[in-house]
Design a binder for these strands. Structure first.
Lengths: 143, 143
DNA sequence: CGCGAAATGTAGCCTTGGCTACAAATTTCG
DNA sequence: CGAAATTTGTAGCCAAGGCTACATTTCGCG
């Protein structure tokens, strides 16, 4: 999100981009999780964990493939490309930072995890940096 | 749509609910802002400020009316109902808290405002409470 | 090996939020 | 007052993401 000029914001950039990016990140993150756990991510498992019907997951994976983030062969597992892995790592790092930040300001761990999933997609790079700096300055002094 | 069961893990009925509520909150907030500034909220102004075409705003307002959050007569301004005002106040209070929290952890003010708009819709009540507690414990020791 | 179960793919529809184009009402102003 | 400009409403289309139903492929197992 780098549209700082309100007069430039097309409606397109609002809800659309917002939700679009978040969805993409969710899928990449989930595929990475499943790959770590099972060695591959199956459509059915992706769908189940994200709480959607399998055709929905199929569509999303097709989009990931279109964008060069994942690869898969028919009736086989889904795998992330290098770009996909990179995005996944970035997303997970950001997730960890957001959770850590929430915990640092007193949000209970389980709640931090839940809210972070919604929040993380809206944390800009610079804000993330600020979070990291704050956490570093705290140095884990929080109990 | 009563999939509000948290024990269902991350399989909440995701994107739909998420974006839907955020949009509604954005409109209510904007109408409240305009009402405070001009005494009423005109469709054209709502649309302009939210960066959408006016028919998009018209549709959204129709939805607010359907949900009992706003009222309006043809070719006239839009006004919030009591329920709408209540929601607006709640949304604005949350917005202020989120911005304050971001600033408290070192996010620059303008960036805090921008990111807060995306983040606030995903901050649960309990997390908001935690934010308030943290801010209180800080007691304005900043700047 | 063959067959049923499970997994995946495909088709087609729904809803939502966005847009453009055009119609109608209101406001402004000569 | 009346015409032009502005505002609002309405119609109709699009894309995205969700779902169900049904087709096809793979897998598990007798």
């Amino acid at each position: 999100m780098s549209e700082t000029d309100p007069s430039q914001i097309k409606g397109f950039n609002r809800a659309r981009e917002r939700a679009s990016r978040a969805l993409l990140e969710d899928y990449v993150e989930m595929i990475a999780d499943l790959a770590a756990e099972f060695g591959e991510a199956r459509i059915t498992e992706i769908a189940a964990r994200l709480g959607v019907a399998h055709p929905t997951a199929t569509k999303a994976v097709a989009r990931l493939k279109r964008e060069g983030l994942a690869v898969s062969r028919p009736y086989r597992g889904v795998f992330l490309t290098e770009a996909g892995e990179a995005l996944a790592e970035q997303v997970r790092a950001r997730h960890r930072t957001v959770v850590a930040l929430l915990r640092a300001v007193g949000v209970p761990e389980d709640l931090a995890e839940l809210d972070a999933e919604g929040i993380e997609h809206h944390v800009s790079t610079r804000t993330l940096k600020a979070f990291e700096a704050f956490l570093a300055s705290q140095g884990g002094k929080t109990g």
